[in-house]
Design a protein around this nucleic acid. Structure first.
Length: 177
DNA sequence: TCAGTGATTAGG
DNA sequence: CTAATCACTGAG
């Protein structure tokens, strides 16, 4: 699929990102993840798979242990990025949602024809320098809408078995085929 | 199926 | 300081 198909949308603002993560996560499916490179080339990729991580009570969420240096972005008001390294290799792209001191984020797992959260960031060149980036004001990464209307599917989040039966089986992964 | 990889965290 | 853990991927 052509990453430049469809009409460019309007950049999403704080009103969108500062809603609850369970509103924002499904709403992101079909929207355009937009990245601008130093050479001025722009990539627009339709978001196809995300997961919601919600609050200190969510045992799959990094914020379950409270505020730490790593998780500090999640405690900020929505509209910034939370980037971290997992398994020593892969950068994860998360969009912070909700209000300040209510730690939430959406993990972006697939966009365009890039499937897999680690592959996505590798292909787009997203790394720790994007941590805490304000995607409402940034000149190099943002989200555009209203986007495509796509069939929505849900399922359990991937790779969080450690969180116990309840939190590892709740259907907080949203995707389209 | 499984090793690789290194930041992060809790605990001594 | 140590050691366990980890929101994954690609090779076999």
């Amino acid at each position: 699929m052509n990453s430049r198909s469809g009409s460019p949308g309007k950049r999403l603002d704080y009103n969108f990102f500062r809603q609850d993560v369970l509103e924002v996560a499904p709403a992101l499916i079909g929207k355009w993840l937009t990245v601008k490179y130093p050479c001025d080339k722009v990539s627009r990729l339709v978001i196809k798979e995300v997961e919601a991580y919600r609050g200190i009570e969510d045992l799959a969420c990094h914020a379950r242990r409270g505020l730490t240096p790593r998780t500090e972005p999640m405690f900020c008001a929505g509209g910034i990025l939370y980037i971290y390294l997992v398994y020593g290799i892969h950068w994860m792209l998360n969009i912070v949602t909700g209000k300040q001191n209510d730690p939430q984020a959406v993990l972006v797992r697939a966009a365009g024809d890039l499937y897999g959260p680690g592959r996505l960031t590798k292909s787009l060149g997203i790394n720790s320098t994007y941590n805490h980036e304000d995607i409402v004001g940034s000149t190099r990464i943002w989200i555009e809408g209203p986007g495509e209307k796509l069939k929505m599917c849900t399922g359990p989040r991937i790779g969080v078995e450690y969180a116990g039966e309840y939190w590892s089986t709740i259907n907080w992964r949203f995707f389209t085929k």
